[in-house]
Amino acid sequence: MEGGGNNLKMKQEKIREGSFHVIHKVPSGDSPYVRAKHVQLVEKDPEAAIVLFWKAINAGDRVDSALKDMAVVMKQQDRTEEAIEAVKSFRDRCSKQAQESLDNVLIDLYKKCGKVDEQIALLKQKLRMIYQGEAFNGKATKTARSHGKKFQVSIKQETSRILGNLGWAYMQQTNYIAAEVVYRKAQIIDPDANKACNLGLCLMKQARYDEARPVLEDILQRRLAGSDDCKSRNRAEELLHELESQHPSFFSSSSSVFNIEEVFIEELDQLMKEWARYRSKRLPIFEEISQFRDQMAC
C-alpha cells in the first residue's frame, strides 16, 4: 500500500508540474534555456533572463529560440541597439529555418530605434526572397503563431504584409510617392482596411483629395477586410474629416512629396533586372509595379 501511495504522489506531482509549465508557458527541464524562460516568465526578472539567454546561446541550447527571446526582452528593456548587434552576431549559429523569423525580429528592432534605411533594405531583401521562390523554405505556406495560437500564412499574405511595412517605412521618410506605389501593390494582392487608410493618407499628403476619398469610403462601406475593426473605421473617419476640411497640414512645401522619386524608380528598375531570370516564379505584383511606375513617369 505504501508503494502504491508513493506512486500516486509521484503521478500527482508530475501532473502539477505539467500544469505549471502549461499555465506559465515554460518548457520543462533544467537546461540554460529553460532556466532563462523561467526567470523571464515566472520570476519576471528581464535582466537576469538576458544573462541566462546569453548562457543558453553560448552553450548551444535551443539557440534559435534563445536568440529570438533574448532580442525581444532586450527590446522591452530599451536595449534595442544591443539586440540588433546580438542578432547579427549570432544568427549564423541558428538553423536555416530560423532565418526568416530572425529577419522579422530585426525589422521590429530597426523600427523601434528609427533605423528606417536598414528597415527598408531588409524588407526589400525579403521581397527578393519571395520573388526568387526562397521564402518559407520553398513552401507555399508557413505556420505562424500569434497570442499563443497557430495559423497558416500564405505567400500572398506575406507579400502583402511586407509591402505594407515597406510602405510605412517610406512614409516615415515622407517619401509619399514611393509609399503610394507600394501600398497600391499591397492592396492588389491582399487588400485590407489598415493599408487602405495608409494609402488614403499618402494621397492626402500629395493633396490628391479626390483620389483619397473613395479609398477611405471603401472602409466605412465595409468593402475591405478589417473594415469592422473599430480602430480602422475610426481612423478612416478622422482622415475623411481632415480631407473635407482640406487641412493645410496636408500641403507640404517639400518638393520630394510632389516629384517622382528618381532614386526609387532606379531601385525598382535594378530589382527588375536582378529578378528577370526568375520570371517563371514571378508574382504578378512585380509586373504590376513596373507598369504602374511607367504610368507615373509619363
Rank of each mutant, 00 (worst) to 15 (best):
residue 272 M to N: 11
residue 43 E to N: 13
residue 92 D to R: 14
residue 154 S to F: 07
residue 190 D to E: 14
residue 84 I to Q: 02
residue 105 V to Q: 10
residue 76 Q to R: 15
residue 97 Q to R: 15
residue 239 L to K: 00
residue 139 K to A: 15
residue 268 L to H: 02
residue 171 M to E: 06
residue 102 L to F: 07
residue 205 K to C: 11
residue 75 K to H: 08
residue 124 K to H: 06
residue 96 K to G: 06
residue 218 D to R: 14
residue 277 R to A: 13
residue 9 K to Q: 10
residue 266 E to G: 15
residue 59 A to M: 09
residue 267 E to Q: 14
residue 53 F to R: 08
residue 273 K to Q: 14
residue 24 H to D: 07
residue 221 Q to G: 01
residue 108 D to H: 11
residue 54 W to A: 12
residue 89 S to K: 15
residue 26 V to Q: 02
residue 121 A to D: 08
residue 142 K to H: 03
residue 28 S to F: 02
residue 186 A to K: 04
residue 242 E to Y: 06
residue 107 I to T: 10
residue 49 A to F: 04
residue 165 N to C: 05
residue 123 L to A: 06
residue 240 L to I: 07
residue 3 G to K: 11
residue 34 V to R: 04
residue 201 L to K: 05
residue 264 F to D: 04
residue 208 R to G: 00
residue 143 T to W: 03
residue 20 F to I: 11
residue 287 E to H: 12
residue 290 S to N: 10
residue 139 K to F: 06
residue 281 K to W: 03
residue 264 F to Y: 12
residue 10 M to E: 07
residue 298 C to T: 09
residue 180 E to P: 01
residue 110 Y to Q: 00
residue 19 S to K: 13
residue 277 R to G: 01
residue 100 E to C: 06
residue 258 F to V: 03
residue 183 Y to W: 06
residue 171 M to R: 07
residue 221 Q to D: 06
residue 173 Q to C: 06
residue 73 V to H: 03
residue 102 L to R: 10
residue 206 Q to Y: 02
residue 227 S to N: 09
residue 103 D to G: 09
residue 85 E to S: 14
residue 249 S to P: 00
residue 148 G to A: 12
residue 267 E to K: 11
residue 194 N to A: 13
residue 80 T to W: 01
residue 225 A to Q: 03
residue 139 K to P: 00
residue 52 L to A: 12
residue 273 K to W: 03
residue 156 K to A: 08
residue 268 L to V: 14
residue 22 V to Q: 11
residue 221 Q to F: 04
residue 123 L to G: 04
residue 230 C to Y: 00
residue 251 F to W: 08
residue 231 K to I: 14
residue 52 L to N: 02
residue 293 R to L: 09
residue 230 C to G: 03
residue 15 I to T: 13
residue 250 F to N: 01
residue 288 E to R: 12
residue 16 R to F: 02
residue 54 W to T: 14
residue 271 L to C: 08
residue 230 C to S: 09
residue 11 K to T: 09
residue 194 N to L: 12
residue 152 Q to K: 15
residue 51 V to I: 13
residue 181 V to A: 09
residue 118 E to N: 08
residue 227 S to F: 05
residue 84 I to V: 15
residue 269 D to M: 12
residue 47 E to L: 14
residue 216 L to K: 03
residue 79 R to Q: 13
residue 280 S to E: 11
residue 79 R to A: 05
residue 69 D to W: 01
residue 200 G to F: 00
residue 29 G to D: 06
residue 181 V to N: 04
residue 62 R to L: 04
residue 104 N to T: 05
residue 192 D to N: 15
residue 290 S to F: 07
residue 287 E to V: 14
residue 119 Q to K: 13
residue 53 F to Q: 08
residue 207 A to I: 01
residue 41 L to Y: 09
residue 70 M to G: 11
residue 292 F to P: 00
residue 240 L to W: 02
residue 87 V to T: 09
residue 209 Y to M: 08
residue 286 F to V: 12
residue 100 E to S: 13
residue 71 A to S: 11
residue 275 W to L: 09
residue 31 S to F: 02
residue 240 L to S: 04
residue 27 P to V: 12
residue 158 E to R: 07
